[in-house]
Amino acid sequence: MLRLIKNDSQHEDTLARIYKLMQLDLQPDTEESDELEILSMLVKKYEDEHYPIPEPTPVEAIKYRMEQMNLTDAELSEILGARSRKSEILSGKRKLSLTMIRALKERLNISADILIQLY
């Protein structure tokens, strides 16, 4: 029986059931595949409420994307306009300008919502 997850014990039980369902070779539009989808939504709701993950700072997002994309410091400097700017931004001494935010959004595909945050 499907129910809302209200505590950590129910959360663990639901995760165990999800794991069991994931071990099966489920076909779409079956009772088990629907159950897996619903349980996943319930877990997401519970985890979003009880274990929220904060948005990264602009600097954390830039560093993460650099690592993901294997970008060099020189490539980031090119995006930001100057080597000294890159250093100042990554150290937190300088804030991003609107031009830099636009370039980072375009070239690194970082959400503008993250880049415009105060940090």
Rank of each mutant, 00 (worst) to 15 (best):
E78C: 00
L71F: 13
D73E: 07
K105V: 14
M22Q: 10
R83F: 13
I116C: 02
L21V: 14
Q68E: 14
A74Y: 05
L36D: 09
Y64K: 14
A74L: 08
K86R: 08
K44F: 09
M1T: 14
A16I: 13
N70S: 14
K45W: 05
T99Y: 10
R83C: 05
K45C: 12
E67M: 15
L104Y: 15
D8T: 04
L118M: 04
K105I: 00
Q10D: 08
Q117E: 03
I38L: 08
I38F: 15
L42D: 07
K86G: 11
N7R: 02
Q27W: 06
E35D: 06
E32S: 07
T30W: 04
A16F: 09
E67S: 14
V43I: 05
L98M: 08
L98T: 15
S97G: 12
M22G: 10
V59L: 12
D29L: 04
P58M: 04
L108M: 08
L115N: 02
D25I: 04
I89S: 00
S33R: 05
L108C: 00
S91K: 00
K20D: 15
R65E: 12
L42K: 14
L104H: 05
K44T: 10
L24N: 03
P58Q: 01
T72Q: 14
K6M: 07
L76G: 10
L24H: 12
I110S: 01
I110D: 00
K93H: 12
S77H: 11
M41Q: 13
E60Y: 01
Y119C: 01
A103R: 04
N7E: 02
I18N: 06
Y64T: 15
H50K: 14
K63P: 01
H50Q: 05
L108H: 02
L4K: 04
S77L: 02
G81H: 01
R102W: 14
E60V: 03
R17P: 02
S33Y: 08
G81E: 05
E47I: 11
A74K: 09
E67A: 07
